[in-house]
Simulated assay, not measured.
Amino acid sequence: MRKRRQYYKPYGGRRSGPIWLLSLLAVVLIFVLGFVVLLGIVLFGSRDQLSGQPQVMVILGCKVETWGPSILLQDRLDKALDYLEDHPDLTIVVAGGQGDDEHVSEAQCMYDYLTGHGVDGGQILLEDQSHNTWENLRYTRALLEEQGVEATDFVVVSNGFHLARVRMLWERAWDGETTLSTLAAPSSHLPSRLSMYIREPFALVKSFFFDR
């Protein structure tokens, strides 16, 4: 029997996968890295940052339930009340309109909660037309100008996950003309805290490109 002739085949290197699979993996890797970077920005911003001597406190709205402020909103209000114990003379703006599933505006709900805990209603201004963070800040500026309130130092109160985006949008709304401090309220409701820290990096990108 004749032996089958063996032909030499040079080594062509390790075969790579299909181009589409490599491209998909590259896209996934870029997405994951981008998310991690953005989450880092969100986490870095989720802390108290105080500077200057705030003259105006702005409390940003959140969901209102049938019984009153949601847990996240109550966290913001309690954080504000703690600060007001040592700074009782601030002008306060409560910012948030009324959603389709809310029986009162977020601003009114916050006003009721604060006055129910001893804050003088005369020092609270209600911004009750906004429906997102960008409108919160723009309409707050318009309200203060309308009321003749002149201030250069502000403190904004919101949950920690929210504050990196707040700082970015504040610079746009106020043209860098003010000193901004932030108070990071805790997020007592664990499911909400987890979902918000996942959501917020995407909201940061959205606001960077579209909230102008």
Rank of each mutant, 00 (worst) to 15 (best):
G160R: 13
V58P: 01
I41D: 12
P201L: 05
L38M: 15
M1E: 05
F202Q: 00
Q6T: 14
E106F: 00
S207Q: 10
P186L: 15
D120P: 05
E200D: 13
F209M: 14
G13Y: 06
T133V: 09
T182N: 05
T178S: 12
L38Y: 13
F208H: 12
M168C: 01
Q55T: 03
L50R: 09
L72Y: 03
G116I: 01
P18S: 14
C62I: 06
L25W: 09
S192C: 01
T133E: 11
G176E: 14
A26T: 07
L81W: 04
Q98E: 11
M196N: 03
L204G: 06
Q108P: 07
S105C: 00
A173K: 13
G176N: 13
L43F: 10
G68H: 08
L144R: 04
A185K: 03
G148C: 15
N132Y: 00
L43P: 04
V156F: 04
H189G: 10
L163W: 04
A26I: 02
L38A: 13
Q53I: 10
S46P: 00
E85F: 03
V42P: 00
T133F: 12
K3V: 05
I124R: 11
K9Q: 14
G160S: 09
N159V: 02
P69H: 01
L137M: 13
D100E: 14
G148Y: 08
A184P: 07
I71F: 00
S130C: 05
L39I: 04
L73A: 06
L169F: 15
S187G: 11
E171K: 04
Y7D: 01
K79A: 12
R2Y: 15
R4M: 06
L204K: 04
E135W: 00
V104T: 10
R76N: 09
M57W: 01
G176I: 08
L60R: 06
G97T: 00
L163M: 03
A26N: 07
G45N: 01
L84E: 02
V94G: 06
Q49G: 01
S207T: 12
F209D: 02
S207L: 14
I30S: 10
A203I: 07
L143D: 03
A164T: 11
R165K: 05
H87T: 02
M110G: 09
F210G: 08
Q147K: 14
V205N: 11
L33M: 10
L204D: 06
F161M: 07
F202N: 15
F44W: 10
G68M: 05
R5I: 11
D128H: 14
